[in-house]
Structure formats: C-alpha cells, structure tokens
Write a protein that binds this DNA or RNA. Sequence first.
DNA 1: TCATCACCATGGACTCCATCGACCTTCGGC
DNA 2: GCCGAAGGTCGATGGAGTCCATGGTGATGA
Lengths: 149, 149
Amino acid sequence: MDSIDLRLIDLLRDNARSSYAELARKVGLSAPAVHERVGKLEAAGTIRGYRAEVDHEALGLGVTALIGIIEDSGADTDDVLTAVRAMPEVESCYFMAGVESYQLTVRVGTIAELEQLIVRINRTPGVASTRTAIALSTKWENRPQPGVG
Amino acid sequence: MDSIDLRLIDLLRDNARSSYAELARKVGLSAPAVHERVGKLEAAGTIRGYRAEVDHEALGLGVTALIGIIEDSGADTDDVLTAVRAMPEVESCYFMAGVESYQLTVRVGTIAELEQLIVRINRTPGVASTRTAIALSTKWENRPQPGVG
DNA sequence: TCATCACCATGGACTCCATCGACCTTCGGC
DNA sequence: GCCGAAGGTCGATGGAGTCCATGGTGATGA
C-alpha cells in the first residue's frame, strides 16, 4: 500500500471503467504491473467492487429519505436488522450510537411508497418508533475523498 | 429505456468493470449493440459514472458520522453549501425538509478529526447549530436496488 | 561486506475485446 | 406498398488483457 496504490484507488474511484493500460500510463507503470496491483487490492478487500452510479430519478426512484429507528428495550437487534435487510428500498444501513439504533437511507418512487415503507418498518418486531426526514434535493452523494480515501 | 437497458444497469451496478462482451452474453445481444446502449445511457445521464468501492477503514477513514445542520434564520443557504462543499470529508450532502436544512455524511480517520470538523462546520457563517450521530458500524452502504433502480 | 532470498517491474506473446463500417430487419408514416 | 429511421448482426482490425519468463532491487542474515 504505497502512493501508487493510493493513486490507483483514486483513479478507479473517479472512473471504475478505466482500462489497465490507461491506469498504467497515468501512474507511470506497465499494464501488467497495474493489473497485479489492482488484483491485490481487490483480494485484500481494499477495493470492494465497482459500481455504476445512476440517476435515481431517471429510474423512478426520485424520493430519498433518511429514517432513524428506535428499538424496543430488550429487542433482538438482529431481528430488526434482518427485517430491514430484506427491504430492497433500504440502500444503506448504519448501526448508530445514540437513541436511534439504526439510521437508514431509503429510496422509493413516491411519497405514498415512502409511507408504506415507514408503516412496514414500524410494524417490524423490535421497532419501537421511527423518525423520517425527506431529502428535498441531493447536493452530492458518495463523493470520493482524494489523496487518502 | 426497455427491460434490456434495465438489466444492463443492474449488471453494471453489480460490477461496473464487466466487459461489453460479457454484458452482451448476459442480455443476449451482440457486443456492439450493448456498447451503443450503454453509451446512450451514459449520454442521457441515466448512468452517471463508475466508481470503485473501497474499504474506508483500510484507507484510514474508519469513522463515519451523520451531521445535521440547522441554519441561522435569514442565512444565505448557498454560503453554507459552498463552505460544506469545500470540505473533502463530506461525502454526501442532502438538502432536507425539516428543522435541519442539511444532512451530511462525513468520513474521517479519528474522533479527534471529527471534533475538528464539527467545530469548523459550526464556525461556518450561516450555521446556527449542528447535531452529530456517530456510526458504530456500517451494515451496508449503497446497495443497488435491483429490477428498477 | 557480501550472498541470498523474496518481491516486483519489464517485455514479449497470445488471446480476447472494443469498436468501426457495412449490411439487414423491423416498424411507422405517407 | 414504399421509404426512411432506428437499431440489430456480422466481420475486420487495432489495441487491450493477461500469462510467463527474465532481470533488477531491497532487505535479511552470516
């Protein structure tokens, strides 16, 4: 994990479809060398995968919301987690410090669908209550942190 | 935008480095046809880009937090936004409905750095107060929603 | 200080892919 | 029924991906 690895990571976070030859030119190595380095970063889990970023509105998922979950005292946390994991609308899920055990990022097409999702989460065993905040607009998302990160 | 486009999007969200030939095999078209479809999806903005996903802990950014910003009454929203945009630690930024105008996802290396970041945000003109919640663990992030999205 | 070992980059070779042009099919409108 | 547009397949070619053998370099230990 040296500075060349970091540059490769930066380049791949900027454009994951760059060819190895292009990466090699940019970092000043040969293509096989880059190939091996990237392979090792993948094997080590430093690079987890490659994702296309989409325009959610264009795909009919124009409503983004953040939902905090407060658990029942004595609830089995794994049950809540399993139930939430089964909901495809939940894009991200963090286990939090504080009153709200989980913080979710969800994406749905309409406010009506959001309502149904909230109802479903509230009905989940172990969930005491939820708090929902709706994103009116997304300024930016998943912006890579250059240099290190 | 037909079902083949949606499948291509799903495949690219799963692995953005798939070759056109591989995508072609999976959707039952020729490679040039897939090439043209993907190019159109990119040109239309439906596909915004391709990003490598990294293990943030491995890169020394093990602390994730969510920060809500309450603005001063009468503050210029653009000033706050510009200031926050200049902070590389801020990975995502949503403009929200509710008391907290902005919701940020931030990533730093240590709690000390988080403290400094919060101080910096609080000192930003237009910011009345902030509310920070720390993620103890990330259950999942940026999970693609299959089928549509 | 020198020998040894392990690791990594290089360069070549071979296979496969990206991509362009030409032609074909299908569908809508006239 | 004909024509044009859109979008598909096919074929060719230039370049990329990837494997392998070789050589150089830095660290370790005697």
